[in-house]
Write a protein that binds this DNA or RNA. Structure first.
Lengths: 341, 341
DNA sequence: GTTAGCACTCTTGGACGGCGAGTGCTAACC
DNA sequence: GGTTAGCACTCGCCGTCCAAGAGTGCTAAC
């Protein structure tokens, strides 16, 4: 149905278009790539490819540009592998070593790195603390009315909150409470803290006012970290794309990138097993129908932690972005492990 | 030198230009504002104002636009007061109540609020933890090799870090270390922790390996919070300004806004006592010579905490932005106090 | 001092035409 | 039958031209 020569021509067109952003015509294509056939033949093949839906025509007498279907075919089979170079690996290594001192900096810097190397917008969805397992809770005295609750999870996160003490309660009461909570919640994921565990805590604590306070502590441990963090990088690269040289279009994209919830939804929707590429029209959201998104999930010890992604115009360097994401998502596990115990 | 009628005309021109973004001509000005004189007279006055440097001419035969000097005169004297409305106050109040649960959210939300109300870019420089006073340090056991250090400061910040224990040291050693550190550093600002205090700690701790560990703890308490946090809001408003309808210009501004250090420097440079307005050419950085910055500092109990600012085109609504910042910087103190003890 | 009138300037937007790149089709070629 | 040269045709792009509109500066009259 689509023979080897057609494939070569399609690949040449897409490669050209990706690097030039100009519709490509038969003459120039024949000149640049040594395809061994004349422009006229290429024209015929192009007409066929268009008929089959792999190419598009802005108007009569302008070169062809790839359609979403064309990119899809390219990504699924034609794409020339473009592995991460040694320099890039070295850059990534140095970057993490120099800039990441605390675990929460990992994600911001990962976003920066991805956007720098791919020259596109990057998105990093950091692990949700709430799906980490509860490890231990401790209190520190602060003053007569307050204590600091320090909550640790298995994934290596430590959080602290200031909690008010109910009148009449002492710090010793809170220490007792910590013992009960630690006992009842050991190993629970934060998300799975539900009725039964709470009931057990209630039974063991007995005192109503203390139980209320315990609830508040648990509640606050949960709710402030319930929403996963999203980090963006390199939004400015969108400004450099010729397809967004129109202020209205760029506005549309930049405004969308400010809608954190929307982006998170998109990332969730695309969160597959490994590398997933969504091209142009394939996107459900019409505001990014001129863009492609490549997502990859990263894991630690078999557990899904989060997603990293690249967003760019459909005319993006898929090969580079894909191999980088693949590299980053294994690398990321190692970096996180360094902060882990 | 610049009589009352000239002032009225200058004010009318600036008000018009601020709301329309179009150069204003004598005829339209006469029609819109009831100045009691004919266009010809206005033309004469305009010519005078231009001679004096308050107005500019893009080319012969186009209307006038205010110069930086013109805006300066306007801001210093002509500006019609535009107090924060009751609705705006209510909005601000509701916003803080609904969205701010933790102190570090105050600044991000303040930035959002300012940009929303002024429809311009906002910048918020959060207080530096390192100029807060050290309050207390405590350790919690984590595992055989590590402890969690929890550091509290007077300004209401609590930070935690994971610290490795030197081999041979026990958790009890660390507790003793905490006692020494708390004793020696009580009341010091984090920034002022210098040689003498450290020497005292060394003398009291005695053991070299423990002292090294103590140094690491102090070091990490300092360095991760040394750099103050910057929050931006509403960069998209720049996209809506007609003067930045050119992609190159918008790129210039947006790229600059991504340079955190640069922005911080600018804010520091403009950090005056109260409200400070820097207009167009008055800016040292030529990349914002088409912009104005209004900065205001906020305090708590007499101590300077940080800066809030609005960045917009020179043609911005100074009156509104100024009164809002003035309101916000008193309000902010109250909001912070809520998290304070 | 103020104003009406007028000549002049400059931008904006639409119309027009030539140029260049590209297509589609046909007829000839291997 | 696939391949190619040739040719007519189509558009977008760009520069020019022209008229309309907004505004200025100057002069002379009030």
């Amino acid at each position: 149905m689509i023979d080897e020569r057609k494939q070569r021509i399609l690949q040449a067109i897409i490669d050209d278009y990706i690097s030039s952003a100009e519709p490509v015509g038969s003459r120039t294509l024949a000149r640049k790539h040594d395809l061994g056939v004349s422009p006229a033949t290429i024209r015929n093949e192009m007409a066929d490819l268009e008929m089959l839906g792999y190419l598009e025509h802005i108007h009569t007498s302008s070169g062809r540009i790839p359609s979403s279907k064309g990119y899809r075919f390219y990504v699924d089979g034609l794409i020339p592998p473009k592995p991460v170079t040694d320099e890039e690996r070295a850059l990534i290594d140095r970057w993490y070593k120099a800039r990441v001192k605390r675990i929460d900096e990992v994600f911001q810097e990962t976003a920066r790195l991805i956007s720098q190397v791919t020259r596109n917008v990057s998105m990093v969805l950091a692990p949700q603390v709430s799906q980490a397992a509860f490890r231990c809770l401790q209190f520190l005295p602060l003053d007569e009315q307050r204590v600091i609750a320090v909550i640790m999870t298995d994934a290596g996160f430590v959080e602290n909150k200031i909690v008010g003490m109910p009148s009449g309660a002492t710090f010793e009461d809170f220490q007792r409470m910590a013992g009960v909570i630690n006992h009842c919640l050991a190993g629970c994921t934060l998300r799975s803290i539900q009725g039964p565990a709470l009931k057990q805590i209630r039974d063991e604590i007995r005192e109503e006012s203390l139980y209320e306070a315990a609830l508040e502590v648990i509640q606050r441990a949960l709710d402030s970290e319930k929403r996963e963090r999203l980090y963006l990088g390199g939004t400015r690269h969108m400004l450099e794309q010729p397809e967004f040289h129109d202020v209205e279009k760029i506005k549309d994209i930049l405004l969308m990138l400010e809608e954190e919830e929307l982006i998170k939804d998109i990332l969730h929707a695309h969160m597959g097993d490994g590398l997933e590429v969504t091209i142009g029209q394939e996107n459900e959201n019409r505001r990014i129908k001129d863009c492609s998104i490549i997502t990859a999930t990263y894991h630690l010890d078999g557990e899904l932690l989060g997603t990293i992604a690249v967003l760019g115009p459909t005319r993006m360097e898929y090969a580079k972005a894909m191999s980088l994401l693949e590299y980053m998502n294994t690398n990321l596990a190692d970096v996180i492990r360094r902060f882990h115990w």
